[in-house]
Design a binder for these strands. Structure first.
Lengths: 130, 130
DNA sequence: GATAAGGTTTCCAGTCACTGGAAGGTCAAG
DNA sequence: CTTGACCTTCCAGTGACTGGAAACCTTATC
C-alpha cells in the first residue's frame, strides 16, 4: 500500500503518517522509486495510534502503549496505570473547563448584548469583582 | 514599577509580561537604564489579561477585548458575541473530553491491572471493538 | 573600591503535534 | 506526450509561552 491508501484506511492525513515515521512510531519499507510501502502491520499500528490519539493520549504515551502492545510479557497493571494517569488528567481538565464555563456563562447571561456600551463582562475582567 | 513588582501584583510571570509587550498587548515606558517602567494603567491591563486568559480566551480574543474595553462607544453586543463564541467552544471541548473520559473510564475499569498480560485497553486500541 | 547577590536586559531555542506550501520526481490514462 | 493525480523532501509556522545563556544594573556588605 502507498501512503494515500493507508491514510484513507487508517483515517489519518498522509502528513501525519509521514510525521509518525519521522519520530519513529512506524518504519514502513521503501519501493525502488522511493515511495513508502506499508504492510498490514503498519496499517494496524496506524489505526492503533489513531484510536489512542482520539482518546487523548500524548505521542509519548502512544509510543509506550505500542511497546506494551508488542511486549507479550507485559503486565496489564502497566497499561492500566498509564491509562489511569491519563484519565486523571482528563478529569482535571474537565473540571477546569467547567469552572471556566460556569463563570463565562454567568457573565454572558448578565450582559444585555445591545448597542449600549455598559458590559458586565468587561467590568468583571477589569476589576475581578462581580 | 519594575517588571518584578508588576509580575507579583498581576500574578503573571515576568517572562509572560515581556512576551505580552513583544506582541503589542502592552507598551510600558523605559527608564534611562533600559528597564521597563510600568504605570498603573499597565498593571491594570495585565490584570485584565490575566483574568481573560484564566477564562480561556485566546491572546487574539484578549487583544479584541482590550480594544473593546478602551472603546467607550462599544456595543455590549460585540463583547457578548465574542464571549458567547468562546463559551460555545469551551462547551464543545467539555463534551469531547467527557466522551474520552467515558470511554477511558470503562477501559480502565475493565482492566484487571495485575501481572498478567491480557489487557482490554490494548485490545480495544488494537481492534477498535469492545 | 571590590565583591556578591539579586534584578534586569536581549536573544535564541524548545515545547506539542501537527499543518501548509514549495519544488520536484513518478505513474497511469488518453 | 501531456495531463493530472500521486508521491518525495525540506522549510516554516502554529499558540502561548518557557528555559537558559550572556551580559548589564543596583544595592548591600566588607
Amino acid at each position: 500500500m502507498n501512503i494515500g491508501d493507508v491514510a484513507q484506511r487508517a483515517g489519518l492525513p498522509a502528513k501525519t503518517i509521514r510525521y509518525y515515521e519521522e519520530i519513529g512510531l512506524i518504519t514502513p519499507m521503501r519501493d525502488t522509486n522511493g515511495y513508502r510501502r506499508f504492510r498490514d502491520s503498519d496499517l494496524h499500528k496506524l489505526a492503533f495510534l489513531g484510536r489512542a490519539r482520539a482518546l487523548g493520549f500524548t505521542i509519548e504515551d502512544c509510543r509506550t502503549l505500542l511497546a506494551l502492545y508488542d511486549d507479550k510479557t507485559r503486565a496489564s497493571a502497566d497499561v492500566k496505570h498509564l491509562a489511569k494517569a491519563h484519565l486523571d488528567k482528563i478529569e482535571d481538565k474537565i473540571t477546569q473547563l467547567q469552572s471556566m464555563r460556569d463563570t463565562l456563562s454567568e457573565l454572558v447571561q448578565s450582559c444585555a448584548g445591545d448597542n449600549r456600551p455598559d458590559c458586565p463582562i468587561l467590568s468583571d475582567l477589569a476589576t475581578g469583582k462581580h
